[in-house]
Nucleic acid binder design. Structure first.
Lengths: 175, 175
DNA sequence: GCTGACATGTAAGCAGTTACATGATTAT
DNA sequence: ATAATCATGTAACTGCTTACATGTCAGC
């Protein structure tokens, strides 16, 4: 799976601009796929050249013009081919956990700061995820709901562990 | 954070070979940082050239010879400098969740197969994590325990969601 | 004779990331 | 004026992945 596959999938749902594709990555895809314009626009260009998508220039008033991309037959075939490939194992890279691993020599105070910071980040993620869900759930399929709930459950689980440890640190301090 | 930083950190703990560094990545680091020999050996070479680590050739009997790497003063400084940088946001890439997002047109049967497969993978992860923990916990610091428990809690959370949904599918089928 | 653990590397390629660059319009 | 939203791109770099390549020794 590369960015190309996901972009094709999103254009199967409906025609979109690069800007709108980025919005999807920043909302519902946030907790399982991160990317940037630096991937989106060059990919769209390559896909156009390869005949998998078609570009339509839409003139707008009150807003800058935009390029709407439509998937072609060839593009649909490419996406269906992708769907037949094996699912690759998940990739995670958590610098927070790496730091926790190496944090054995840090003071309890430093540890508490790290934990508090991470809780804040996780809570932001939870809130954003819930907001995104409220906007999307009207048209969500069953499998999309599962994707959402797994993300939410994992964030909640992390928050619980973090809060438990902070409590533990506090209790040790008050003894 | 790049592979280089983690390798330096691991060599701060104790001198290791490339093979042993890989073992760490395959056990305790498994759920938050994935890599391969293709990163480890070239990095070790670069680090040696830069004077951050030193290579010692150890002749063994009954086993192939090995290269043990020791961190230098300069290497320790580099690692401490890294520790002062900001923690970068987590990166996740779950092809399973991407497929779930796009899986709206799949049959319940297909969905059930996907869920069962993912449960199997998650359960393998849980078991491996628990095994790794039993081997390492004797010498684990508090913060290392947190890293372990976050990983475990997230896998358990995912398993719960998946199992719930399978149950739901079963119930709908029996109506 | 073969499998599995131990052990070390290279080289080509790629899929991005990061930083840069630009600009219109609307609302405050 | 200035921030926010809408909107599109490029170019250099990089850090890794994948596949290849090689070999020892122990135990069955």
């Amino acid at each position: 799976m590369t960015g190309k596959d996901i972009i094709l999938g999103l254009l199967m749902e409906k025609s979109r601009t690069g800007y709108e594709i980025n919005e999807v990555f920043e909302t519902i895809f946030r907790h399982f796929y991160k990317t940037s314009y630096g991937m989106i626009y060059p990919t769209l260009k390559r896909l156009t050249k390869a005949g998998l998508v078609e570009k339509e220039i839409v003139v707008q008033t009150g807003k800058p013009n935009k390029n709407v991309y439509h998937i072609t037959k060839k593009g649909e075939e490419a996406f269906n081919d992708y769907l037949k490939t094996d699912i690759s194992p998940e990739k995670r890279e958590s610098e927070f956990l790496v730091r926790m691993y190496f944090g054995g020599n840090e003071s309890q105070e430093t540890l508490r700061i790290w934990l508090k910071n991470e809780i804040q980040l996780v809570e932001n993620n939870i809130e954003q995820l819930k907001n995104d869900h409220q906007e999307w759930n009207k048209k969500m399929t069953l499998s999309q709901s599962i994707a959402y709930e797994i993300g939410l459950a994992q964030f909640l689980a992390e928050r619980d562990v973090l809060e438990n440890y902070i409590k533990q640190l506090d209790e040790e301090n008050h003894r």
